[in-house]
Protein backbone atom coordinates (compact mmCIF):
# COMPACT_ATOMS: atom_id res chain seq x y z
CA UNK A 1 0.00 0.00 0.00
CA UNK A 2 1.45 3.33 -0.97
CA UNK A 3 1.52 6.31 1.36
CA UNK A 4 -0.76 8.32 -0.89
CA UNK A 5 -3.34 5.57 -1.10
CA UNK A 6 -3.41 5.12 2.63
CA UNK A 7 -3.84 8.83 3.17
CA UNK A 8 -6.84 9.13 0.91
CA UNK A 9 -8.29 5.96 2.39
CA UNK A 10 -8.46 7.41 5.88
CA UNK A 11 -10.20 10.76 6.39
CA UNK A 12 -8.99 11.57 9.93
CA UNK A 13 -5.38 11.39 8.83
CA UNK A 14 -5.94 13.32 5.66
CA UNK A 15 -7.63 15.87 7.89
CA UNK A 16 -4.64 15.89 10.18
CA UNK A 17 -2.35 16.67 7.28
CA UNK A 18 -4.45 19.58 6.11
CA UNK A 19 -4.25 21.95 9.03
CA UNK A 20 -1.04 23.91 9.04
CA UNK A 21 -1.70 26.75 11.54
CA UNK A 22 0.97 27.37 14.13
CA UNK A 23 0.18 26.69 17.81
CA UNK A 24 3.56 27.47 19.33
CA UNK A 25 5.97 29.97 17.81
CA UNK A 26 9.37 30.41 19.40
CA UNK A 27 11.23 33.49 18.14
CA UNK A 28 14.98 33.93 18.65
CA UNK A 29 14.93 32.72 22.25
CA UNK A 30 18.23 32.81 24.13
CA UNK A 31 18.90 31.74 27.67
CA UNK A 32 22.06 31.63 29.75
CA UNK A 33 22.48 30.31 33.27
CA UNK A 34 25.38 31.66 35.30
CA UNK A 35 28.41 30.41 33.40
CA UNK A 36 26.41 28.25 30.98
CA UNK A 37 24.87 29.34 27.71
CA UNK A 38 21.91 26.99 27.34
CA UNK A 39 20.05 28.28 24.29
CA UNK A 40 21.15 30.62 21.50
CA UNK A 41 18.60 32.27 19.22
CA UNK A 42 16.25 29.32 18.98
CA UNK A 43 13.27 29.71 16.66
CA UNK A 44 10.75 27.00 15.94
CA UNK A 45 7.12 26.43 15.06
CA UNK A 46 4.82 23.70 16.29
CA UNK A 47 1.88 23.08 13.97
CA UNK A 48 -1.48 22.96 15.73
CA UNK A 49 -2.97 19.53 16.29
CA UNK A 50 0.32 17.78 15.58
CA UNK A 51 3.11 16.21 17.56
CA UNK A 52 6.47 17.96 17.40
CA UNK A 53 9.53 16.35 18.95
CA UNK A 54 12.65 17.97 20.35
CA UNK A 55 15.68 15.75 19.91
CA UNK A 56 19.23 16.59 20.83
CA UNK A 57 22.27 15.71 22.91
CA UNK A 58 22.01 15.70 26.69
CA UNK A 59 22.39 19.16 28.18
CA UNK A 60 21.59 21.03 24.98
CA UNK A 61 18.73 22.90 26.62
CA UNK A 62 15.61 20.91 25.72
CA UNK A 63 14.15 21.08 29.19
CA UNK A 64 15.07 24.75 29.38
CA UNK A 65 13.26 25.45 26.11
CA UNK A 66 10.18 23.52 27.18
CA UNK A 67 10.03 25.36 30.49
CA UNK A 68 10.42 28.71 28.74
CA UNK A 69 7.45 27.81 26.55
CA UNK A 70 5.56 26.73 29.69
CA UNK A 71 6.29 30.10 31.26
CA UNK A 72 8.17 28.53 34.17
CA UNK A 73 11.51 30.12 33.19
CA UNK A 74 12.07 33.58 31.72
CA UNK A 75 14.07 33.79 28.50
CA UNK A 76 16.93 36.28 28.35
CA UNK A 77 15.95 37.33 24.85
CA UNK A 78 13.33 36.48 22.27
CA UNK A 79 9.63 35.77 22.57
CA UNK A 80 7.30 32.79 22.66
CA UNK A 81 3.81 32.93 21.24
CA UNK A 82 1.22 30.28 22.06
CA UNK A 83 -2.00 30.37 20.06
CA UNK A 84 -1.17 33.89 18.99
CA UNK A 85 -0.52 35.31 22.46
CA UNK A 86 2.87 36.19 23.87
CA UNK A 87 3.87 34.04 26.84
CA UNK A 88 4.78 35.83 30.07
CA UNK A 89 3.97 33.08 32.56
CA UNK A 90 2.07 29.81 32.87
CA UNK A 91 -1.36 29.85 31.27
CA UNK A 92 -4.49 27.71 31.07
CA UNK A 93 -3.92 26.85 27.40
CA UNK A 94 -0.71 24.99 28.25
CA UNK A 95 -0.13 21.91 30.42
CA UNK A 96 3.18 20.38 31.38
CA UNK A 97 4.03 16.69 31.79
CA UNK A 98 7.05 16.52 34.05
CA UNK A 99 9.97 14.21 33.51
CA UNK A 100 10.09 13.34 37.22
CA UNK A 101 6.25 13.01 37.38
CA UNK A 102 5.88 15.73 40.08
CA UNK A 103 2.94 13.93 41.70
CA UNK A 104 1.73 14.86 45.16
CA UNK A 105 2.77 11.90 47.33
CA UNK A 106 -0.05 12.57 49.79
CA UNK A 107 -2.78 12.58 47.17
CA UNK A 108 -4.32 9.52 45.56
CA UNK A 109 -4.60 9.06 41.79
CA UNK A 110 -7.96 10.81 41.52
CA UNK A 111 -6.82 13.86 43.47
CA UNK A 112 -3.55 14.05 41.56
CA UNK A 113 -5.31 13.87 38.21
CA UNK A 114 -7.91 16.40 39.33
CA UNK A 115 -5.33 18.70 40.92
CA UNK A 116 -5.22 21.21 38.09
CA UNK A 117 -9.01 21.50 38.29
CA UNK A 118 -8.91 21.69 42.08
CA UNK A 119 -6.62 24.72 41.75
CA UNK A 120 -9.21 26.26 39.43
CA UNK A 121 -11.94 25.74 42.05
CA UNK A 122 -13.93 23.30 39.95
CA UNK A 123 -16.49 21.61 42.28
CA UNK A 124 -15.35 18.28 43.66
CA UNK A 125 -17.92 16.03 41.99
CA UNK A 126 -17.39 17.69 38.64
CA UNK A 127 -13.60 17.50 38.69
CA UNK A 128 -13.68 13.90 39.87
CA UNK A 129 -15.89 12.97 36.96
CA UNK A 130 -13.39 14.57 34.57
CA UNK A 131 -10.53 12.83 36.36
CA UNK A 132 -12.30 9.47 36.11
CA UNK A 133 -12.63 9.95 32.36
CA UNK A 134 -8.92 10.63 31.83
CA UNK A 135 -7.86 7.94 34.29
CA UNK A 136 -9.70 5.48 32.07
CA UNK A 137 -8.22 7.15 29.01
CA UNK A 138 -4.63 6.48 30.14
CA UNK A 139 -5.52 2.95 31.24
CA UNK A 140 -5.45 3.38 35.01
CA UNK A 141 -9.01 2.29 35.77
CA UNK A 142 -9.11 0.49 39.11
CA UNK A 143 -6.20 2.47 40.54
CA UNK A 144 -8.19 5.58 41.46
CA UNK A 145 -7.61 5.35 45.19
CA UNK A 146 -3.96 4.29 45.05
CA UNK A 147 -1.19 6.62 46.14
CA UNK A 148 1.83 7.37 43.94
CA UNK A 149 4.17 5.16 45.98
CA UNK A 150 1.89 2.21 45.22
CA UNK A 151 2.27 2.70 41.45
CA UNK A 152 5.02 1.72 39.04
CA UNK A 153 7.05 4.36 37.23
CA UNK A 154 5.06 3.99 34.04
CA UNK A 155 1.78 4.26 35.91
CA UNK A 156 2.95 7.41 37.67
CA UNK A 157 3.82 8.89 34.31
CA UNK A 158 0.31 8.14 33.13
CA UNK A 159 -1.08 9.96 36.16
CA UNK A 160 1.05 12.94 35.14
CA UNK A 161 -0.29 12.70 31.61
CA UNK A 162 -3.90 12.37 32.76
CA UNK A 163 -3.45 15.41 35.01
CA UNK A 164 -2.23 17.43 32.05
CA UNK A 165 -5.11 16.20 29.86
CA UNK A 166 -7.72 16.87 32.54
CA UNK A 167 -7.25 20.65 32.42
CA UNK A 168 -8.14 20.50 28.73
CA UNK A 169 -5.21 22.61 27.64
CA UNK A 170 -4.66 22.94 23.90
CA UNK A 171 -0.91 22.57 24.09
CA UNK A 172 0.79 19.72 25.93
CA UNK A 173 4.45 20.09 26.80
CA UNK A 174 5.99 16.72 27.64
CA UNK A 175 9.52 16.40 28.99
CA UNK A 176 10.97 12.93 28.37
CA UNK A 177 7.76 11.32 29.55
CA UNK A 178 8.76 7.77 28.71
CA UNK A 179 12.27 7.80 30.11
CA UNK A 180 11.29 5.85 33.20
CA UNK A 181 9.26 3.07 31.65
CA UNK A 182 10.13 -0.30 30.18
CA UNK A 183 10.02 -0.99 26.45
CA UNK A 184 6.62 -2.71 26.54
CA UNK A 185 5.01 0.14 28.44
CA UNK A 186 6.76 2.59 26.17
CA UNK A 187 5.28 0.99 23.05
CA UNK A 188 1.84 0.81 24.58
CA UNK A 189 2.17 4.41 25.64
CA UNK A 190 3.29 5.49 22.18
CA UNK A 191 0.15 3.97 20.72
CA UNK A 192 -1.96 5.74 23.35
CA UNK A 193 -0.24 8.98 22.51
CA UNK A 194 -0.85 8.63 18.78
CA UNK A 195 -4.49 7.90 19.51
CA UNK A 196 -4.68 10.99 21.71
CA UNK A 197 -3.10 13.19 19.06
CA UNK A 198 -5.70 11.94 16.58
CA UNK A 199 -8.64 12.13 19.02
CA UNK A 200 -8.01 15.13 21.21
CA UNK A 201 -6.75 17.37 18.42
CA UNK A 202 -4.23 18.92 20.74
CA UNK A 203 -0.76 20.19 20.00
CA UNK A 204 2.01 18.14 21.55
CA UNK A 205 5.61 19.21 22.09
CA UNK A 206 7.57 16.23 23.18
CA UNK A 207 11.16 15.74 24.35
CA UNK A 208 12.85 12.39 23.91
CA UNK A 209 16.31 10.88 23.62
CA UNK A 210 15.17 8.07 21.39
CA UNK A 211 15.49 8.59 17.63
CA UNK A 212 13.15 5.68 16.92
CA UNK A 213 10.53 7.12 19.22
CA UNK A 214 10.84 10.57 17.68
CA UNK A 215 10.46 9.25 14.16
CA UNK A 216 7.64 6.91 15.08
CA UNK A 217 5.55 9.53 16.86
CA UNK A 218 6.29 12.85 15.26
CA UNK A 219 4.84 14.94 12.53
CA UNK A 220 7.86 17.18 12.93
CA UNK A 221 11.24 16.54 14.52
CA UNK A 222 13.40 19.46 15.63
CA UNK A 223 17.06 18.53 16.01
CA UNK A 224 18.98 20.70 18.45
CA UNK A 225 22.74 21.09 18.33
CA UNK A 226 25.03 20.58 21.27
CA UNK A 227 25.12 23.33 23.92
CA UNK A 228 24.46 26.16 23.41
CA UNK A 229 21.33 24.68 21.87
CA UNK A 230 20.46 25.95 18.41
CA UNK A 231 17.99 24.65 15.88
CA UNK A 232 19.94 22.52 13.62
CA UNK A 233 17.55 20.67 11.43
CA UNK A 234 13.82 20.18 11.07
CA UNK A 235 12.61 16.86 9.71
CA UNK A 236 9.05 15.90 8.85
CA UNK A 237 8.70 12.14 8.63
CA UNK A 238 5.74 11.14 6.50
CA UNK A 239 4.69 7.77 7.87
CA UNK A 240 1.76 5.73 6.59
CA UNK A 241 -0.28 5.89 9.79
CA UNK A 242 -2.88 3.38 8.69
CA UNK A 243 -0.41 0.51 8.92
CA UNK A 244 0.07 -1.49 12.09
CA UNK A 245 2.85 -0.37 14.45
CA UNK A 246 5.06 -3.28 13.40
CA UNK A 247 4.49 -2.58 9.73
CA UNK A 248 5.32 1.09 10.17
CA UNK A 249 8.57 0.15 11.88
CA UNK A 250 9.48 -1.92 8.81
CA UNK A 251 8.60 0.79 6.27
CA UNK A 252 11.49 2.24 4.28
CA UNK A 253 10.38 5.82 5.15
CA UNK A 254 10.67 5.03 8.84
CA UNK A 255 14.00 3.23 8.58
CA UNK A 256 15.53 5.87 6.30
CA UNK A 257 14.50 8.74 8.57
CA UNK A 258 15.94 6.98 11.64
CA UNK A 259 19.15 6.34 9.74
CA UNK A 260 19.41 9.95 8.49
CA UNK A 261 18.97 11.37 11.98
CA UNK A 262 21.49 8.94 13.38
CA UNK A 263 24.04 9.95 10.76
CA UNK A 264 23.47 13.57 11.75
CA UNK A 265 23.73 13.02 15.49
CA UNK A 266 26.76 10.78 15.09
CA UNK A 267 28.91 13.76 14.29
CA UNK A 268 28.44 14.81 17.90
CA UNK A 269 29.54 11.50 19.26
CA UNK A 270 32.71 11.39 17.23
Amino acid sequence: MSTIASLTASPPIADRRAEPSTAVAVRAVSKAYPGVEALREVSLDCPAGRLTTLLGPSGCGKTTLLKIIAGLIKADAGTVEVLGRTVCGPGPERAFVFQDFALLPWANVVRNVAFGLELRDVPKSEREAVAAHYIAEVGLKGFETKYPHELSGGMRQRVGLARALAVKADVLLMDEPFSAVDEQTRRKFQEDLLRLVAQERKTFLFVTHSIEEAVYLSDRIVLLSRRPGRIWKVIEPDLPRTLSPDQIRREPVYLDTVEAIWQNLRQYVE
Binding site: A70, F98, A102
Partner: peptide, 22 residues
Protein backbone atom coordinates in the same frame (compact mmCIF):
# COMPACT_ATOMS: atom_id res chain seq x y z
CA UNK B 1 10.69 19.95 46.27
CA UNK B 2 11.28 22.33 43.37
CA UNK B 3 9.43 20.07 40.96
CA UNK B 4 6.24 20.26 43.06
CA UNK B 5 6.49 24.05 43.13
CA UNK B 6 6.93 24.14 39.36
CA UNK B 7 4.00 21.77 38.97
CA UNK B 8 1.79 24.02 41.12
CA UNK B 9 2.94 27.05 39.17
CA UNK B 10 2.29 25.45 35.82
CA UNK B 11 -1.24 24.49 36.89
CA UNK B 12 -1.81 28.11 37.95
CA UNK B 13 -1.85 27.78 41.73
CA UNK B 14 -2.36 31.08 43.53
CA UNK B 15 0.01 31.89 46.38
CA UNK B 16 -2.45 30.78 49.12
CA UNK B 17 -3.22 27.58 47.18
CA UNK B 18 0.46 26.87 46.79
CA UNK B 19 0.98 27.25 50.53
CA UNK B 20 -2.08 25.25 51.59
CA UNK B 21 -2.08 22.52 48.96
CA UNK B 22 1.59 22.02 48.15
Amino acid sequence: PGSLLEMGQSFLATRPQMIAKV
